[in-house]
Computed example of a mutant assay.
Amino acid sequence: MIELTPSKEGVLVNVHAQPGARRSGVLGEHAGAIRVAVTAAPDKGKANAAILDVLAQALGLRTSQLALISGETSRRKRVLLADITPEDAGRRIAEALPIPKPEVDSR
């Protein structure tokens, strides 16, 4: 379950970053955080900017509505989703998460 924290400006969400990936996108959930992969390398903020772009696109928000609050050099980041309610953020995140593939029993 992805943790959402209401704030005065909107909603705070934890992000687990995967820089230098083959493809960019929302991959799922990791320890209460939304897992985001980006092709950009973690160099001079390029991956952080790419993460905000991927999240904005996946959640149907403007890039200006997202701000990195903490975790600039860490895989674990806190991102502010501005001008959005926790309910709306939860719905958008749920829609952005990939549908898990059913496990196949190969007995």
Rank of each mutant, 00 (worst) to 15 (best):
79 V>T: 10
92 R>A: 11
19 P>C: 06
47 A>H: 02
6 P>I: 00
76 R>L: 15
39 T>H: 07
21 A>K: 13
63 T>F: 14
75 R>W: 11
72 E>S: 09
84 I>K: 09
63 T>P: 06
33 A>K: 01
38 V>T: 10
6 P>M: 00
46 K>S: 03
77 K>Y: 03
38 V>W: 02
46 K>I: 01
73 T>P: 00
49 A>S: 11
85 T>I: 02
37 A>L: 13
26 V>C: 08
10 G>K: 12
88 D>Q: 12
56 A>C: 06
62 R>M: 09
3 E>I: 07
46 K>Y: 01
13 V>R: 01
105 D>L: 15
39 T>M: 15
38 V>N: 04
56 A>I: 02
94 A>S: 15
44 K>A: 10
41 A>V: 14
31 A>W: 02
4 L>K: 01
96 A>D: 11
84 I>C: 10
29 E>M: 14
9 E>A: 14
50 A>S: 10
32 G>K: 03
37 A>S: 09
25 G>Y: 06
33 A>E: 00
94 A>I: 07
81 L>Y: 10
46 K>F: 01
88 D>V: 13
16 H>C: 08
98 P>T: 12
3 E>R: 12
85 T>L: 01
85 T>C: 00
88 D>P: 05
79 V>R: 04
72 E>L: 14
78 R>T: 15
64 S>F: 09
103 E>R: 14
77 K>P: 01
22 R>C: 01
46 K>G: 00
85 T>Q: 01
1 M>K: 03
91 R>F: 01
106 S>R: 10
28 G>I: 14
42 P>E: 14
107 R>T: 11
103 E>C: 13
73 T>N: 07
49 A>M: 03
103 E>P: 04
67 A>W: 01
92 R>S: 08
21 A>M: 15
31 A>G: 02
18 Q>G: 05
80 L>M: 12
80 L>Y: 05
17 A>C: 07
68 L>F: 08
57 Q>Y: 09
79 V>D: 04
53 D>S: 15
101 K>C: 07
49 A>K: 10
55 L>D: 04
17 A>P: 02
50 A>G: 05
48 N>V: 03
60 G>Y: 11
11 V>K: 00
24 S>C: 00
39 T>F: 05
95 E>D: 08
87 E>L: 12
70 S>H: 11
87 E>C: 08
100 P>D: 14
54 V>D: 05
107 R>K: 13
72 E>N: 10
96 A>T: 13
80 L>R: 11
27 L>I: 13
95 E>N: 09
51 I>T: 05
50 A>R: 07
69 I>N: 04
58 A>E: 02
67 A>Y: 02
56 A>N: 03
101 K>D: 09
60 G>M: 15
16 H>G: 02
68 L>S: 06
78 R>F: 07
55 L>R: 08
91 R>G: 01
104 V>H: 09
73 T>A: 06
106 S>F: 11
23 R>V: 12
77 K>H: 03
102 P>V: 05
56 A>V: 03
4 L>D: 01
79 V>H: 05
24 S>M: 00
93 I>R: 09
33 A>C: 04
53 D>H: 11
84 I>M: 11
52 L>Q: 05
54 V>E: 07
91 R>D: 02
23 R>Q: 09
7 S>T: 12
57 Q>I: 08
104 V>N: 08
